[in-house]
Design a protein around this nucleic acid. Sequence first.
DNA 1: CGCAATGATTCTTG
DNA 2: CAAGAATCATTGCG
Length: 439
Amino acid sequence: MDEQPRLMHSHGVGMAGHPGLAPHMQDGTGGTDGDGRKQDIGDILQQIMTITDQSLDEAQARKHALNCHRMKPALFNVLCEIKEKTVLSIRGAQEEEPPDAQLMRLDNMLLAEGVSGPEKGGGSAAAAVAAAAAGGGVGSDNSAEHSDYRAKLTQIRQIYHTELEKYEQACNEFTTHVMNLLREQSRTRPISPKEIERMVGIIHRKFSSIQMQLKQSTCEAVMILRSRFLDARRKRRNFNKQATEILNEYFYSHLSNPYPSEEAKEELAKKCSITVSQVNSVSGFTNEVSNWFGNKRIRYKKNIGKFQEEANMYAAKTAVSATSVSAHGSQANSPSTPNSAGSAASFNMSNSGDLFMSVQALNGDSYQGAGVGANIQSQVDTLRHVISQTGGYSDSLAASQMYSPQGINTNGGWQDAPTPSSVISPTEGPGSVHSDTSN
DNA sequence: CGCAATGATTCTTG
DNA sequence: CAAGAATCATTGCG
């Protein structure tokens, strides 16, 4: 680099003011002027023009001679200037700024995800992101998920950083290489320092565009990782038995209006979260309770027969607990025989209306469905059995009525207003309130 | 492996 | 906006 200015200035005079020089010289000797200097230049140019005709050795020698010629720096200057004016001015116009916005976005995202940025802080930031996004979840394997997520993220991070480093190193190497090459060539070709600088700029831009690709793919990888780990649907966990029992108990004991209020949901969430896991994020669990009730309502309504046995069971259970008859508690399970389950399931009624009628027939005595003789009869028998049993504990207890689908009107919808006489029992469970009907 | 159960999500509706 | 309905995706069982 430092060689060039020295050469250029060593002779003091530039030839910048002679753009028309070359055509003048091309006619051969140019000796008519009698100016020795112009004669020299003509010679030089002649040599340049015929350089391809020479042998290699000859050319080498001439080159050396040219390099040592006293006019060389001046010529170099001129050629550089011409080149600058013609070629580079065209290219110089397309200096860019557009990818900056995207680059910024990528940078921001990588920083937010904890991939780029401070070495150690990034990891904790990522963990925080994972924790926040998966928050409200349950289960001890949550932490396992997190560590897995974190591990994958740090893996991405590492790859990203090593790649980035590699790119940077390659960029630097390549830049110095090109610079050396150009400097070397500047002895024989008109390459100005400015042009070298420009070339370096071009190289850097190319490399930064490669870097952007790296960032982009890193972002994609992080997004995929996140979506895979944080998509809750993929990580569905069945509630454990106790939680299901609690929810079912509530559901069947509020069958007339199975829409728990927010407070009730929270209560249930608290109860369930104790049984489900050690994590007590009730606020998150109320959502699950809502989901559960939503699913339950719709699935119950869709196929009441299928849930009949379950209803019996829970109704019996609440009945037992309400009357605090501990001695006969075991009998609560007996009514629901496998046989009844099978018959109820094999009903396969097309709509709930028919089934509703069949159940209603319990109150009357002799309903024979149109095309469903024996099955209905068996179910009716089973139900009657249950009712008689549960009713036997306490006749003031109308719990048996609560699970009969009387809360559902003939359209299949839940009753809007409670029907106090038939559905609501005056003696509900200890903790429960009448608020379920007031909604 | 197939299938039913089931928790979650998304779209629709009042 | 909440409930219902449809659908997806996973789990667990035979």
